[in-house]
Design a protein around this nucleic acid. Structure first.
Lengths: 333, 333
DNA sequence: CGTTTTCCAGAAAACGTTTTCTTTATCATA
DNA sequence: TATGATAAAGAAAACGTTTTCTGGAAAACG
């Protein structure tokens, strides 16, 4: 079944050269004469030879496998757009780079201790990790990263070292900006800020941005933790909307929850979100939000991991964000 | 970096046995005495030995890798819930089975001819394929499957052979049932049926189901191709809604498009969808639909592929579906 | 008690590459 | 022409497993 019937050995025989010469051609070594190169390539084409990546990995000790570790339920419970974007972005870039992506969910490693995780990733022959949305209380995964056993790129979490890079948008600034723009249209002084997860890095950064704006504009901000849950945001909105708070949420999903609550209460008031997921369009109302390009972020993470694997030191990468206003009609068309 | 420092060789030395004996213990061979087994396991624990899957794959010629081939944009352009569910279901089951899933998008192989595809999957050391939503005009991929070079499981497409299984719900029956239930509440005789893709297997089956119901109930069905596009469904609805057609769509996404059109036209009329994606809740109205458990379907596909890989012949598997009615509130809670 | 099985364990050859080291041929230099 | 440097190609040892084959001891049998 799909066995590699023809090996480097056959190519060598066909071309009348040594195995090592074929290997050198395959890997674009410099010291091969043009003539030999052509003979070998002809033989490869002739026989339909496909290099066996397994054997290559065993011999060279380079597997080219990276694990994309993500939490399907972290950002939204229902629609998994963000992880899907990460997957698409990472896989496409990985293919371009000749790497393989093994997708791993937090749930699959949730019960493991550090030793087990190391063992798990080792047994998978994984050379590097891309970890999405690590939060402060993921101590095991954090220890894994700090063990320096693997090269790692953290999306949306800090932690730069010799073997670790971090990649994220400027959450503080983005929250500051979007809220400022959102509030520009009205004269609310009282804000209900529905924040994300306790112990979430991005949540905390966004909150800092919000607070900075509040100080600057003399706003009175009521902070409640929405835990990135639509339902939670809906409940909180129910509780506070009558009292004329402007509502700013640390994610689009929560913004949708808030909007639903407002609709139920027959209040028309715009809401401010964060992330710019396409889902937004289904809410049916206008909304200010921050758009991050998750696909691009994941692609950059793959490139960064390649860099680390080449021995370069880790670094902190800040990706751009965009402020947008989504309308019902913008999205449908 | 995360190299497997300790090999089977070290374990053998530590346990005072031969390498082959350790291998036998690792693979649960029968002919190993209890005493030896324990010695070896002790040594493994002592040294923290992790078997090298690469070497194992090379030697045994079993890589345990399967490709999950899917089209991110096939079912919906905006929210990729269905592919995400496939991915989650397949990966979790694969882990349970000790297999690896390599996710491949249609776009990554779109330009290839059959030979290139074979080469591509071979070079990835892939033993089997799970192909989601193959349509009639994907001739290259179809030929790849028919080349019998790989074991394959087709989700939502026919094609059973010695090496190929098919897995799907009974689309015809499901469409028949959901439409019947949907229509039970009213006395519409004129139907606008917004079908899926031309050349899509499931689309055609659903249409057959719809037509069967129409014959049975003496309905007048106007069929238009919505191409699984929200926007297309919206346009079609605009065009026909005034004329009192009941609207039945071959997917939820299209049903949402239809509903949006109705809302714009200030018409209140329920709509019938298909798939039961969680996105539905955001539409804000009541809707009849068919729920398929995509995650479970993918998990079954993995199991089926394992069966095929053990040499069992292909088969046709019909998964159950459920008729549901989604309300705004059902989904949010 | 001799012969045949059965059961375990070890030796060694694969698996298909990469890579280091050696050899040979060519060329420039003195 | 002898000498050293350089370029290209080959030989062979790894990489860490699996698996087949062989050997020896113990058990079963007549």
């Amino acid at each position: 079944m799909a066995s590699n019937l023809v090996s480097i050995r056959d190519v060598a025989r066909e071309a009348g050269v040594a195995i090592s010469t074929v290997s050198k051609v395959l890997n674009h070594y410099p010291n091969v004469s043009e003539e030999t190169r052509q003979k070998v390539n002809a033989a490869i084409a002739q026989l339909g030879f496909v290099p066996n990546t397994i054997a290559s990995a065993l011999s060279s000790k380079k597997t080219g496998r990276m694990a994309l570790v993500l939490d399907v339920n972290r950002h939204s419970q229902k629609v998994d757009e963000i992880p899907m974007r990460y997957i698409i972005g990472a896989i496409n870039k990985a293919k371009e780079k000749g790497m393989d992506i093994i997708t791993v969910f937090f749930t699959m490693i949730a019960e493991m201790d550090v030793e087990e995780m190391i063992r798990y990733f080792q047994s998978q022959s994984i050379e590097g990790l891309i970890i999405c949305g690590l939060s402060k209380d993921d101590t095991v995964l954090r220890k894994l990263v700090e063990s320096q056993k693997f090269k790692a790129v953290l999306i949306d979490a800090p932690g730069v070292s010799e073997n670790t890079s971090s990649i994220h948008i400027d959450n503080e600034k983005a929250q500051y900006e979007v809220a400022k723009r959102f509030l520009a249209g009205n004269s609310h002084k009282k804000i209900l800020y529905i924040s994300g997860k306790k112990n979430g890095y991005v949540s905390e950064e966004r909150l800092i941005g919000m607070n900075r704006l509040a100080d600057e504009m003399g706003l009175q901000v009521l902070v409640r933790t929405g835990n990135f849950s639509e339902l939670e945001a809906r409940k909180l909105t129910m509780q506070y909307a009558r009292s004329k708070h402007a509502i700013i949420c640390a994610s689009d999903l929560m913004a949708i929850g808030a909007m639903k609550a407002l609709i139920d209460m027959d209040i028309y008031r715009p809401v401010c979100g964060f992330d710019g997921v396409s889902l937004m369009g289904y809410a049916g109302k206008q909304m200010h939000t921050v758009r991050q390009d998750f696909q691009k972020i994941a692609a950059c993470a793959v490139e960064e991991l390649c860099r680390l694997m080449e021995g370069e030191p880790g670094q902190d990468i800040v990706m751009p964000h965009k402020l947008i206003r989504i309308n019902y009609l913008d999205v449908i068309s």
